[in-house]
Structure formats: C-alpha cells, structure tokens
C-alpha cells in the first residue's frame, strides 16, 4: 500500500504557528541568507560576541541600533 503524503500544515494565521513555520517552503534558505548577512556585517565591523554573552553572534546589540527598541520586543537578549 503506498504511503500517503503528510497533510500540509494548515496555513491559517494563528493555527499552530510553529508547525506552519516549519512547513514553510523557501524559509530555510531565506533564514540562511539572513544569517550570512549578519555574519558579514559583524565581520565588516570587526565584532566578536563576548565570551559567555547571550547575544546572538552578529546580531546588532540594542545599544548600537535603536534608542526606540521598546517599539519592538521590549529588548531581545
């Protein structure tokens, strides 16, 4: 008996977002491009994450970027 293909994740906003994100075609290469961009930026600026730092490598620290970051997620760690 042939295997049935896995049903596609429901793409309705608000429905199991994590499953929908994981099932989003084209997302992994887009994220990989973004991560390369962040690494390139950090290299261009000569930045290295501090040892033990919780900052995501190459993610711009709040203090470098925006005085108004409260507008987004409070403050990312």
């Amino acid at each position: 008996m042939p295997e049935l293909p896995e049903p596609a994740a429901d793409q309705t906003p608000g429905v199991d977002l994590v499953a929908r994100i994981r099932a989003t075609a084209g997302l992994a290469p887009l994220v990989a491009e973004a991560q390369r961009t962040w690494l390139d930026r950090a290299a261009a600026a000569g930045q290295q994450p501090a040892e033990g730092s919780e900052d995501v490598p190459a993610w711009r620290a709040f203090s470098d970027a925006f005085p108004t970051f409260w507008e987004f997620t409070n403050r990312p760690r």
Binding site: V18, I21, R22, T24, L27, A28, L30, V31, A34, Q35, V56, W59, P76
Partner: peptide
C-alpha cells in the same frame, strides 16, 4: 521576524 523564524526552525 527572520531571527524568530530561524529560532523556530
């Protein structure tokens, strides 16, 4: 958004 999506993946 891409940082969050990457963390989910």
């Amino acid at each position: 958004a891409l940082r969050f999506a990457g963390a989910v993946l």
